[in-house]
Write a protein that binds this DNA or RNA. Structure first.
Lengths: 139, 139
DNA sequence: TTGTTCTAGTCAGATTCTCTGATTAAAGTA
DNA sequence: TACTTTAATCAGAGAATCTGACTAGAACAA
């Protein structure tokens, strides 16, 4: 079984379930928007950085941030260190979704650990963290 | 770091690189088409099954299969056991892309093994195979 | 056998996501 | 100052996806 599909399937499972939980809780947000929102840092992040981290073009990132802004999940503030740039920051409203997402994630991890065992779960996480070092464009 | 993102990042890396290699080799195909094509079984697969495995609606699967058919990567033949159904089968042309994809995949795995070590790579694959049992709708 | 219900697939229409190319304004640099 | 680069946006188009409605064949119950 190919490693790409092996990674893709549980990845999608998490995405789907976490998004479903968040939507269920009353937050209207899409998968694409969530992928960008997830990348916004605690002190705000520039559009260009978001685009790079989420691996989409600036235009796409801008389009998604527009929607997130309209829905009240992020705000754009001027970047004091660069007059051309603006910082995208998450709002209090978006912060409220975090515990919902975390709870569903914890539920999933618990199910997985139930199935594959604690040791393998630890190993999985460790291997993935290391792979992130060479595959995550954000780092 | 959340487990969904940890899975998503390397998953996308594989998808992107394998697709790029296949396109580079002259096969004109998109990510969405590839995801469906990948799920076609050796004896042909029904559209409904493809849709389920790839987790898209029948309409979307049909749309993508149309394109794959036009491009000559799959053909639709009547299902002898059911007059309503047709079997989607991969053509010889599509088979030619397989070694290209496999080669790139092997290259990626080698790089990863270089970075995280052989033992962790084995553990990773084992954990993912097991997770597939509870997350892959195809099985 | 004959309705009734279910299943496989398609048609129509709309929305969402994504891209390429061009433009504007601010920064950095020679 | 003039040139180049960078951050962001505007315009337009294409790709992928969905919901809802429909057709034809299969399955089943009376």
């Amino acid at each position: 079984m190919n490693i790409g599909l092996l990674l893709f399937i549980p990845s999608r499972e998490v995405e789907n379930r976490v998004l479903a939980a968040v939507v269920e809780a009353g937050f209207e947000i899409t998968q694409a928007q969530a992928r960008v929102l997830m990348r916004v840092g605690p002190d705000g992040t520039r559009l260009t950085e978001l685009a790079e981290a989420a691996q989409v073009t600036k235009q796409t990132a801008g389009f998604l941030v527009d929607q997130l802004e309209k829905a009240g999940y992020v705000e754009r503030v001027p970047d004091p260190s660069d007059g051309r740039a603006r910082l995208v920051r998450v709002t209090a409203k978006a912060e409220e979704a975090v515990p919902v997402a975390n709870a569903e994630m914890a539920r999933i991890e618990a199910e997985w650990e139930q199935h594959i065992g604690r040791r393998r779960m630890t190993q999985l996480r460790e291997a993935l963290e290391m792979l992130g070092e060479i595959t995550d464009p954000y780092r």
